[in-house]
Amino acid sequence: MAGTTRLPILYPVMLVLTIVKVCVSENENTTEDFDAEYDTSSITVDYNLYEQQCQKTELRSFRSWFMPTMYSVICFVGLVGNLLVILTYIYFKRLKTMTDVYLLNLAAADTLFLLTLPFWAVSYTGEWVLGLWVCKATYGIYKVSFFSGMLLLMCISIDRYFAIARAASAHRYRSRAAHFSKVSSVVLWVLAILFSVPEMVHTKVSGNTCTPFLNESVELKIGIQVGQMVGGFALPMLVMLFCYIMIIRTLLQARNFEKNKAIRVIFAVVLVFLLFQLPYNAVMLVRTVTLANGGSQQCDADNRLFFAMDVTQSLAFLRCCLNPFLYAFIGVKFRNDLFKLLKELGCMSQESFFRYAACKQKRASLAMDTETTTTFSP
C-alpha cells in the first residue's frame, strides 16, 4: 500500500526530470549547430559596405591661411582703388555722362562687397560667432554687390557700344543720357536685390558656420543656382562679348592712329573678365551638375572640387581690385582729376603734379583729350 501511494507522487517528478533533460540536450545541439554554421573566427568584415565620413582636414587647414590672406590683400587694395574713384567723382562732381554714373555705382558696389571680406576672413580662421542676422546681412550684401557689379559692367559695355559703334544715334540722345543712366542704375540695384533674396532667406548658422541652403531640398538649390548663373553671369558676359566685338569691328574700320591702343584696352577688359570670373562660374557649374547627379561619391574628388572653388573664388574677388584700373583710371580726364585730388589731400607733391601736367601737355599736342573713358583714351 505504501509502495502504491509513492508511485503517483514519483510520476510528476520523473516527468519534470525528463523534460529538463530533453531541453538541455536540444539546447546543446542547437548551440553546436549555430557555432558550426556561423563560425565567427573565419569572418572578414568588408568595411567598404559601410558609409564613411569624408575627411576634410587638409581643406580646413588650407582655408584657415589661404582665404584670410587673400581676402585681406583683396580688401586693402580694392578699397584704396575704389574709394579713390568715389572721392574723385564726388569731389569734382564728374557725373556728366552715362559712363560716369555707371563707374560710380560700380565703385560703390565693389566697396560694399569688399567690406564683407573681413567677416568671411575671420570665419575661416575660427567659428561664426556674430549671430544669424549678421550672417544673413553679410551674405545678402555680398550677393547684392556681386550681381550689381556684373550688371553694371554689362551696362558700361552697352554704353561704349552706342558711343563708338552707334555714335550718330548716341549723340541725338546725349542730353537724356545722364538721366537714363541714373534710372537704369536704380533698376539694376533692384534686380541685384531680387537675385540675392534666396540667399537672404535660406542662409542659416549651423555648426557655428554661416551657410546658405544647408537643409534645403536639392531641387531648390539647383534651381536657384542655375537662375543666378544665367541672369547674373551668362547674360552679362554674352552682352559684353557682343558689344566689344562690335566695337573692335568699328575701330578696325576707322582711320585713327589711337585705334590700336583702344583695341588693346578692350582686349584687356575682356581678358581680365574671362580669366578672373569665368573659372569660378565654371567650377560652380560643375558643382551644380554634381549636386544634380546625387553628389560626389569619392572623397578625393569632392575635396578637389572645394579646393578649386576656393582658388577660383579668390580670383573672381580679385577682379574688384582691377576694376578701377580698367574702367576709371584709364581715362585721361579722370586721371587729371585724380592727381589734383591727391595733390589737395597732400598725397602728391606740387613738383610731381607739375611734372605730370607738363608731360600731359606734350601728349595732348599729339592726341585729343577725352572727357570719359568711352573712347578708351589712355
Rank of each mutant, 00 (worst) to 15 (best):
M200W: 12
M200I: 15
A108H: 01
V183S: 05
P12I: 06
K362E: 13
L341F: 02
R255K: 14
S352W: 10
R174P: 00
V144L: 14
T203P: 01
V230T: 05
T97V: 02
I164A: 07
Y91G: 01
Q298I: 10
A167F: 05
L103G: 01
T116N: 04
Y161D: 02
L117R: 02
S377W: 01
V205P: 06
I330N: 14
F146V: 04
C23G: 05
K343C: 06
N260H: 13
F195H: 13
H171C: 09
K360I: 05
G78L: 01
Y124F: 14
K360R: 14
R160D: 08
V226Y: 06
Q55L: 12
A163Y: 11
A163S: 14
V205M: 02
T138E: 07
V13C: 08
N260A: 13
A358N: 11
M67H: 00
I330G: 07
S61V: 09
N48D: 12
Y89F: 10
D302G: 00
F66P: 00
A163D: 09
I74F: 03
E37A: 14
M14N: 05
G149I: 01
A2V: 06
S25V: 07
T44Q: 12
E32C: 11
I74K: 01
S314G: 13
V80I: 14
I90T: 14
R60W: 08
Q277H: 02
W189E: 02
L112W: 06
Y47L: 14
F267T: 03
D310N: 03
Y356N: 08
Y91I: 01
V265K: 15
M150T: 11
M368L: 07
R319P: 00
L366S: 09
F257G: 03
D310R: 00
V144C: 14
Q52Y: 08
C210H: 08
K261I: 14
A328I: 04
K333C: 08
T375L: 12
D302F: 10
A254W: 07
A316M: 10
S206N: 09
R355D: 11
K340M: 11
V272C: 12
F213Q: 04
F325I: 08
V13H: 07
